[in-house]
C-alpha cells in the first residue's frame, strides 16, 4: 500500500518502494535495448549513402518538379479504372462479408460449434493476407488486369468488413431484439426489425471506410500487374520519367481526398 504512516499524518504516494524500483528497472532495460538495436542497425547501414541523402532527395525533387501536365489526360482512364476496381471489389466484399458476419457473431450464429468457427476461419484467412499478395497470386491465376485487382481487393476486404461487422452485431442491445421476438415475429423478421436497424450505422461506416482504404490500396496493385494507376506508376518509375510520377501522385492525392469527403458524407448521413 502506498500509504506511509509518518508521525501524526499519513503520506500518500502513487507507488510504493518495490513498485518504484521495478519501474526504474523497466526503463533501464528499455533504454539498454534501444541502444543495442541502434548499434545493430548502424553497423548494417552504408553511411556514405545516407550522408548524401539530402542531396539525392533534392535531385529527385528537382526532376519531379515541372511535371508535364499534358500527361494528365493519359492517366484519367487508369485512375477511373482504379476507383472502379476499389468500388466493385468493396461491393463484392460487402455481399459476402455481411452473411459471414451474421454467421460469426455469437448472438446470431445458427451454431456456435460448427458454423461459427467456419465463419471465423474465413474472416481470419482473408485478413491475414495483404491485398498486394492476393493480387500477386491472382495475376498468376486469372492473368494480369483489372479482374485480378478486383478479386484481390474483395478477398482482403471480406475479413475486414466481416470482423468489424460481427463485433458490431455482438454489441447490440438484446432487449430490443427480445421485444420484437415477444410479438410473435419470425426469425427473419427479428433480424430485419430487431437487429438490422441497430447495426445499420456500423455497417455503413465500415463499408465506406473500407472503400476509402481500398481506393488507396488499388493504386499500388498495378505494381504487380493487377491493373489501375499502379501500372502507369511503375512504367514511369522504370523509365525515370519523374515528371510523370509527380502527375500520378497528384492524381492519387486528389482521388483520395475525394474519397475521404464521400465517406465522411455517408457516415454523417447514416448516423
Amino acid at each position: 500500500m502506498p500509504v506511509i504512516e509518518a508521525g501524526d499524518h499519513r503520506v500518500w504516494r502513487r507507488r510504493d518502494r518495490a513498485e518504484q524500483l521495478r519501474n526504474w528497472l523497466i526503463w533501464l532495460v528499455g533504454t539498454a535495448l534501444f541502444i543495442v538495436c541502434w548499434r545493430f542497425i548502424s553497423e548494417r547501414t552504408i553511411w556514405i549513402f545516407v550522408l548524401d541523402a539530402p542531396q539525392q532527395a533534392w535531385d529527385m525533387a528537382v526532376r519531379m518538379s515541372n511535371p508535364p501536365m499534358g500527361y494528365f489526360n493519359r492517366i484519367l482512364q487508369p485512375m477511373w479504372d482504379t476507383v472502379n476496381m476499389a468500388t466493385i471489389g468493396t461491393l463484392i466484399a460487402i455481399a459476402i462479408a455481411t452473411p459471414v458476419a451474421f454467421l460469426a457473431a455469437s448472438n446470431t450464429t445458427p451454431s456456435v460449434y460448427f458454423v461459427r468457427p467456419v465463419a471465423l476461419a474465413i474472416i481470419v484467412t482473408s485478413r491475414s493476407i495483404n491485398a498486394l499478395i492476393w493480387a500477386l497470386l491472382l495475376v498468376l491465376v486469372v492473368g494480369p488486369g483489372l479482374l485480378a485487382g478486383i478479386i484481390a481487393i474483395a478477398l482482403r476486404s471480406i475479413g475486414f468488413i466481416g470482423k468489424l461487422l460481427y463485433e458490431a452485431i455482438e454489441e447490440i442491445d438484446e432487449t430490443q431484439v427480445e421485444a420484437i421476438r415477444a410479438t410473435g415475429a419470425q426469425p427473419t423478421q427479428v433480424l430485419s426489425y430487431g437487429i438490422w436497424p441497430q447495426v445499420l450505422p456500423a455497417f455503413a461506416g465500415i463499408s465506406v471506410y473500407r472503400w476509402d482504404i481500398n481506393i488507396r490500396e488499388a493504386t499500388i496493385l498495378g505494381l504487380v500487374g493487377a491493373g489501375g494507376i499502379g501500372v502507369q506508376l511503375q512504367a514511369s518509375v522504370n523509365s525515370l520519367a519523374w515528371g510523370q510520377v509527380s502527375v500520378i501522385f497528384m492524381a492519387i492525392l486528389v482521388t483520395v481526398v475525394f474519397s475521404e469527403w464521400v465517406s465522411a458524407k455517408v457516415r454523417h448521413a447514416v448516423l
Partner: peptide
C-alpha cells in the same frame, strides 16, 4: 425496448409482425 432507430410508426407496427409475412414487413 423500442427499436431506437426506427420511427414511432414502425415501432408500433412491429407489434403486427406475428400476423404479417416477411416480405410485406
Amino acid at each position: 425496448a423500442l427499436v431506437e432507430r426506427l420511427s414511432v410508426m414502425e415501432n408500433v407496427l412491429s407489434g403486427q409482425l406475428g400476423y404479417v409475412g416477411f416480405w410485406r414487413s
